[in-house]
Design a protein around this nucleic acid. Structure first.
Length: 117
DNA sequence: ACCTTGACAGAAT
DNA sequence: AATTCTGCCAAGG
């Protein structure tokens, strides 16, 4: 789309994150890869940090975005309990207090679209 | 206007 | 095998 994508990189991140199905989680790298910029994983997280967050649209399920270890990286900025409880509430399996089971709940943004769960 | 930081990931040393 | 450094983009100081 046009040479100037003023649609901030953030917006692209939002578009993907918002598509994360309930009860699923994805990683920064997966989102970045879907955007075509695998190296921007850090910006993805940073985007969420700068993201509108809750209460605004698009609603950003930042809690469904974790690092490749499945660890809730953003718990510090979110208030760890909120992220963890929210994920558990959606049915995400945890292998540790602040670590989700990527083996069971990993969602790949590319191609999966939003299938019924 | 310049430099540093930022919720990561992967390649290099 | 573990640690270091780079890559990418944007915003804050």
């Amino acid at each position: 789309m046009s040479k100037s994508d003023r649609n901030s990189y953030f917006k692209r991140v939002y578009e993907v994150v918002v598509r994360i199905p309930k009860g699923k989680v994805t990683t920064y790298g997966a989102v970045a890869a879907y955007l075509g910029t695998v190296n921007d994983a850090r910006m993805v997280g940073w985007a969420l940090s700068s993201a509108p967050g809750f209460g605004t649209e698009p609603y950003l399920p930042c809690h469904r975005v974790v690092n490749k270890f499945g660890d809730l990286s953003g718990k510090a900025s979110f208030g760890g309990d909120i992220m963890r409880e929210r994920l558990q509430q959606e049915g995400v399996s945890f292998v540790d207090e602040f670590r989700v089971d990527l083996e069971r709940c990993f969602w790949d943004p590319s191609g999966e679209s939003d299938k019924k769960q």
